[in-house]
Every structure is written in structure tokens, then in C-alpha cells.
């Protein structure tokens, strides 16, 4: 795995739980917070890091761990808050959010932020990158998993269609995509997200994106032999 050049992991001195995340998010201030986007992803990202992903600060640089690609990189405050809660970042880092010398920009940079696997923020890139990483895992015979989080509006980007078809044909069972569905696609297909993936050979599950246990159930019940998509419905409140 190719890693950031300046990774420095924070020693954890405090234990955080889900209830602390709102406070951690509030540490980050500024005019470009994309609060709604951040809120929409919070529960899924927390569930991943708290219950699913095989990664922690001590294994962040290990080639043998699970990967998380945040394709929906705008509005990363939830991501940063979870990384801080899990010890990848310090709360001092959070207070610098968006500042000139901060490692935490409004779009994450993998070369700056410990534990961030891809730089993102421009929509429609993460899924193809995750297909490549899943292929790499397959070539290497590594049985880790890769998770890629995108938005339902992001699915408008044509680049996703290429990657969805490709992953289906390749049968990339290590790949799980989470679509945060807040009905933000301008010309979307209400209720049709699962169909877009299924027609290309994916297995699809719909979960309540605000219910940690239901999100975990969706991850645990993935189908083997195909790529999986979890459509996490979060309602219309979150853009």
C-alpha cells in the first residue's frame, strides 16, 4: 500500500463514543462546513469504524487491513470526527479545520491526514479507485475488504456507471459501496438505486442510515461472490 508521507498518529488519551461525535463536530468551525452533508454520513462512518473495519491507528500504515474510500469527500466533518474519536487525529487537529496550516481541509487529503485512504472531494472518483484497489487485493490474494461511500446525488456522475458495471463483471466480492440516499439527485430514480447496481450483478441491501444496528446488519449480511451495495436511507433533511 502506498501511504501518506507525513503520517503521525495521535496517542489516545481519551475514550470517545457515539454520543461525543456531535461535540467533536462542533469543534470544527468556519463557513464551508457542509454540515448537512457531514450529518448524512455520520452514522454509517461511525458504524464502519466502530464495528466493521479492521483498522486502527496502529495498523493505519499496514498493507493488510480494510480500506475505506470516502468518495463523498465534501462535508468531511463526520469523517474527521470519527477519526478523532478513534485516535487517528487529535481534537487539536479538529480545531484547525480549514485553516491555512491545517491538515484538515474541506476536502480530505490522504497525503496529509492519518488514516485517510484517498484524497477526495470531486464527485465520481472513489468508486473506480476502489475497483482498482479491490483488483489489487485479488491479485495479492489478500482477503481484506474495501468500503466506498458515495452519495445518491454523486451517482449522477457518469464515471460511477463505468465502475459499477466493471465491478459487477469482475465479481469484486471484497468491495462494498455505501450509497447515502438523501434524495438529492436532481433527476434521480426514487427507490431505484438498488436496481442500478443489481442489473450489473451486485447484491443490494437497503438499510436505515440513522440506525446503527440496522447499518451493521446490512454490512454483516453481505452476499458473497458479488460486490455489495448498501443503500443507507437518511431522509430528505440531509443534503
Amino acid at each position: 500500500m502506498v501511504h501518506a508521507q507525513h503520517t503521525t498518529l495521535t496517542q489516545r488519551t481519551t475514550t470517545y463514543n457515539y454520543d461525543d461525535l456531535a461535540r467533536l463536530i462542533q469543534i470544527m468551525t468556519g463557513d464551508e462546513r457542509h454540515s448537512e452533508a457531514a450529518n448524512s454520513t455520520l452514522d454509517v462512518i461511525w458504524t464502519l469504524y466502530d464495528r466493521i473495519l479492521n483498522v486502527n491507528p496502529s495498523t493505519a500504515d499496514s498493507p493488510r487491513r480494510d480500506l475505506f474510500y470516502l468518495s463523498k469527500g465534501h462535508g468531511p466533518m463526520s469523517f474527521y470526527a470519527v477519526l478523532a474519536a478513534k485516535g487517528f487525529l487529535s481534537t487539536d487537529d479538529l480545531s484547525t479545520f480549514g485553516g491555512r496550516d491545517s491538515i484538515l481541509g474541506h476536502h480530505p487529503d490522504r497525503m496529509l491526514v492519518p488514516g485517510v485512504d484517498i484524497s477526495s472531494g470531486s464527485l465520481g472518483h472513489g468508486l473506480a479507485l476502489s475497483v482498482g484497489a479491490a483488483l489489487a487485493m485479488s491479485i495479492d490474494g489478500y482477503d481484506g475488504d474495501i468500503y466506498c461511500l458515495i452519495g445518491d446525488g454523486e451517482l449522477d456522475e457518469g464515471s460511477n456507471s463505468e465502475a459499477i458495471a466493471l465491478a459487477g463483471r469482475f465479481g469484486l466480492s471484497r468491495l462494498t459501496v455505501i450509497v447515502i440516499d438523501n434524495n438529492s439527485s436532481l433527476h434521480g430514480w426514487p427507490g431505484g438505486i438498488t436496481s442500478r447496481f443489481e442489473v450489473e450483478g451486485w447484491s443490494a441491501t437497503v438499510v436505515d442510515g440513522r440506525d446503527l444496528d440496522d447499518i451493521e446488519r446490512g454490512f454483516r449480511e453481505r452476499t458473497t461472490g458479488t460486490p455489495n451495495v448498501l443503500v443507507a436511507q437518511v431522509g430528505n433533511r440531509y443534503v
Binding site: 502506498v2 484517498i118 473506480a128 495479492d140 464515471s159 465502475a163
Partner: peptide, 14 residues
């Protein structure tokens, strides 16, 4: 587009 993205993902994995 996927061609370059896939190449990027492979490169990320070394």
C-alpha cells in the same frame, strides 16, 4: 474514466 481510476486504485495498493 474508469481505466484511470482503476489504475489509481492499483497504484494505491503498490
Amino acid at each position: 474514466q474508469a481505466q484511470i481510476g482503476v489504475a489509481g486504485g492499483l497504484a494505491l495498493q503498490g
